[in-house]
Design a binder for these strands. Structure first.
Lengths: 151, 151
DNA sequence: AGCGTGTTGTTGACATGTCACTAACCTAGA
DNA sequence: TCTAGGTTAGTGACATGTCAACAACACGCT
């Protein structure tokens, strides 16, 4: 720490750009989604991952790991979603500690209804703004950063 | 919306990667910073932008715009930082509505002390994980997305 | 001057996420 | 068997951010 390697101009531009994009993009996509479907992006992610799981059911811990969420965050959020009737907690047969998470009929309908609009929003504000090369670079780069952070 | 263009595999990878990186990277960098300096990343950004401003003072609205924050968010945050003695609100001479934001001595010292460790953290978890090409691509891509969102 | 409209910043109510702690349970080794 | 230590999930207190509403002021037009 005695001799910090400050960011170069290019590095600074990437870092600042990332942080700005994070704020604006997330806010915008979230707003689009809420106004169109009544779901937040967090709700959408939970429902989406759950609907793609085998049997449309998942352990809480597995879902948290898959989404890179803390267990606490997921637990709080699931409580709220359960109150709204979108998902359902069930006992876990083979592990007394665990909970299985399942989709309710209402949750299933909600994700089906929300998906087209959400994809359109993601396209409009991010994907369709990028070139195919940028998309691949972004995918590669984010996956590498995530992998490093998951130790 | 009748016929949604779903994301291709590559597009999906970029989108999922971005969202995972967002969660993990921000959490990690924030934790590093808090444990090393007692500042959150938000605190750091405010102090950093303020210390680079001419006269180390800035209008609240200008700072909010520059950081891509909502005015409300900044106002709340400044109140908290002011309570901790890091910044100071002052009357704005040429506009009775406005406030000027200034750095206190304590805020100045805090950013100076925190900077080397924070840069090291950003390098370790993001910048140094990327190639120079990826950094430039990330900068270009994020700036374009931000520009589109700012209309 | 007087009025309407837009800006600037603040506030309160509320939603969300983190952290630290706890309870309940599982598993392996003495 | 039983006990220590790890795992799974839930909880409460707190920090943060959003949204909508508001107050105070600026500015342009008549």
């Amino acid at each position: 720490m005695a001799k910090p390697r400050w960011l170069t101009e290019h590095e600074e531009a990437a870092w600042v750009g990332y942080r700005r994009m994070r704020v604006l993009l997330d806010l915008r996509i979230n707003r689009d989604l809420v106004s169109q479907s009544g779901l937040s992006e967090q709700d959408y992610d939970v429902l989406s991952n759950l609907s793609e799981a085998v049997g449309q059911r998942m352990r809480l811990g597995d879902l948290a790991a898959h989404m890179c969420w803390s267990k606490s965050r997921l637990s709080h959020h699931i409580t709220r979603m359960q109150d709204r009737g979108l998902v359902q907690r069930e006992e876990c047969a083979d592990d007394g500690r665990g909970s299985m998470l399942t989709l309710t009929r209402k949750g299933h309908d909600a994700i089906i209804a929300a998906a087209p609009g959400h994809v359109a929003s993601v396209r409009q504000h991010l994907i369709d703004v990028l070139t195919p090369e940028e998309i691949d670079t972004l995918a590669a780069l984010t996956h590498r950063v995530v992998a490093r952070l998951q130790d």
